[in-house]
């Protein structure tokens, strides 16, 4: 009886690990394919290319004006991170500390943009931005990217703020600190890890966010991911190796930030809100 059970158990375990291995190996090979192709002199249906070259990177850099695109991407991402923190952290504070009528409705308002497909609100938003003559400019791209970013900051920061002892704030108040002073001297230092985590998560997500940027960007305000889409979409004009070189540059940019983020954040936080810290056992 127990023998049969452990046999089943092992088979099940093997199946799960096997599935996982197939997935990881295929994704790794997929990335390796892009890397190999970007370095290949010529690669037509053989195991490995004829020769190796770095020329495709130079060509991609020139052809796609990558320096401009990288600069725009950096501007957009930095602006989105700063602005989403600026409006998100105070809102998270109000939501974490106060109970007020309409709080649930407000929470819903901040949750909705993460639950609705970006295309659904992206198209009306692009229409509005075109009317306001903001679409096609870098400001339009920044505003559009803020819509999922700001609620994300709020959702990540609220549990962080909840676990800070409110007595510290009361003490600061007793000593005559105003709200601004309390924020800069008490909350920001205590929240630094949370703020760092939130900003890195927003950064990584903004670099990869395609739809909203795609809908609102003009020729001068494309971020890297949109430029990459256009390059693949219009394939045939350019060598696939130079597109892959651009994809590699994109991946390296994301991975660098990701590795930095992983030093401060548990990977499971990249997709969900931060778990509330376990309460101390009384």
């Amino acid at each position: 009886m127990s023998g049969a059970k452990s046999w089943l158990d092992r088979a099940w375990s093997g199946l799960l690990w096997g599935t996982m291995a197939v997935f990881v190996v295929n994704v790794a090979m997929l990335i390796a394919t892009v890397a190999t192709n970007s370095l290949a002199h010529r690669w037509l249906g053989t195991w490995l290319p004829d020769g190796w070259t770095l020329n495709w990177y130079l060509q991609a850099w020139k052809d796609y004006q990558l320096s401009d695109i990288l600069w725009v991407t950096m501007e957009v991402v930095l602006a989105v991170v700063l602005l989403s923190l600026l409006i998100g952290v105070p809102a998270a504070y109000a939501l974490a500390r106060r109970d007020f009528p309409g709080k649930r409705a407000l929470m819903l308002l901040f949750l909705l943009p993460l639950m609705v497909p970006p295309m659904t609100y992206g198209i009306p938003l692009a229409t509005v931005l075109y009317k306001a003559q903001l679409a096609g400019t870098i400001w339009g791209v920044i505003l559009a990217n803020l819509i999922p970013a700001a609620p994300f900051v709020i959702l990540v920061m609220t549990p962080f703020i909840e676990q800070i002892d409110p007595n510290l704030e009361s003490a600061a108040r007793v000593f005559g600190a105003g709200t601004a002073r309390m924020f800069t001297s008490i909350l920001v230092p205590l929240l630094a890890p949370g703020i760092l985590a939130a900003s890195l998560l927003v950064l990584v997500r903004t670099i990869a966010l395609f739809e909203l940027t795609f809908l609102t960007a003009g020729p001068d305000s494309q971020t890297l991911v949109v430029a990459l889409y256009y390059a693949v979409f219009a394939a045939g004009v350019r060598a696939p190796q130079s597109i892959d070189a651009m994809a590699m540059i994109y991946m390296v940019v994301t991975l660098v930030w990701l590795l930095i983020a992983l030093r401060f954040v548990n990977p499971t936080q990249l997709v969900s809100r931060v778990k509330e810290h376990p309460r101390a056992v009384a």
């Binding site: 997929l30 892009v34 990869a208 994109y250 994301t254 991975l255 990701l258 992983l262 990249l270």
Partner: peptide, 14 residues
């Protein structure tokens, strides 16, 4: 975490 951050465009390209 890596495939999440690659984004759909890069996955499609690869």
């Amino acid at each position: 975490v890596v495939p999440i951050t690659l984004g759909t465009v890069l996955i499609a390209d690869g």
